[in-house]
């Protein structure tokens, strides 16, 4: 524009357009961002959030499917310590980048949900102030025992002990996991079933192979014995 200040006026026209438009079109409003997500995904009131027995009232659900904040230990349906999936293999403790997991293995085995005697963690502590929600522990766990929770209200007035979340507070059920991360939980369950089936099939194939080898050996021994007698 040829008049002095023309550029500034153009810019002011944009600002004016945004200011007036923000009363009519929500997307021009700078700070109110939530409206951009579809209505069905937002919890409408506190009563809609899923609650686990004994948890804080203001747990929040996740609006995004993979949203993560702090780990949690999974157990299958039943008593937490009887159906715990973690076998204290300590792989997550090794791989954790800021080294915030502290595990002590139990000294004797106990039956887990499948009926197999396994070790279990006598102590499993994660330090809230150190954990950086990187999710590496979830990735390296071979037993799908630790996954990410999206609960972020973990503050406590106790500076030293309060920031260490202990095993019993970390244990949450698989049903809760389905409630907060439905897609991820369903995919994980599917993968566990598929892995189990593959393992069974491999075991069966190996058993059949060894049976066939044993039969072949028995037949060969019989043939030899027959030859000897002839």
């Amino acid at each position: 524009m040829s008049i002095l200040g023309g550029g500034i006026f153009k810019g002011m026209a944009v600002t004016l357009r945004n200011f007036i438009g923000s009363y009519f079109h929500k997307e021009r409003l700078i700070t109110n961002d939530y409206e951009w997500r579809s209505e069905g995904e937002l919890p409408q009131s506190i009563g809609d959030y899923p609650k686990e027995e004994g948890e804080q009232l203001r747990d929040t659900t996740t609006v995004n499917h993979y949203s993560r904040n702090f780990p949690m230990l999974l157990h299958d349906t039943g008593e937490p310590m009887d159906t715990i999936r973690c076998v204290a293999c300590q792989i997550c403790e090794r791989e954790c980048p800021p080294q915030c997991i502290y595990i002590e293995k139990s000294t004797e085995k106990k039956e887990n949900a499948d009926g197999k005697p396994q070790f279990y963690p006598a102590k499993f502590d994660i330090d809230v102030s150190v954990c950086m929600s990187c999710q590496i522990c979830v990735e390296v766990c071979p037993f799908d025992a630790i996954v990410m929770n999206s609960q972020f209200e973990l503050s406590t007035p106790n500076r030293f002990g309060g920031l260490l979340v202990r095993r019993d507070d970390l244990l949450k059920s698989n049903d809760y996991y389905h409630k907060i991360h439905p897609q991820e939980a369903a995919a994980r369950d599917q993968k566990m079933v598929a892995d189990k089936a593959a393992k069974e099939a491999k075991k069966k194939a190996a058993a059949e192979k060894s049976k066939a080898a044993a039969e072949a050996r028995a037949a060969a021994a019989e043939a030899e014995a027959k030859e000897d007698t002839e």
Binding site: Q99, C100, I101, Y102, D125, D127, S129, V130, F160, G161
Partner: peptide, 11 residues
């Protein structure tokens, strides 16, 4: 000392 100190020492 913090709770994290034991973990660090173990490493």
């Amino acid at each position: 000392p913090t709770p994290h100190a034991e973990i660090l020492e173990k490493h």
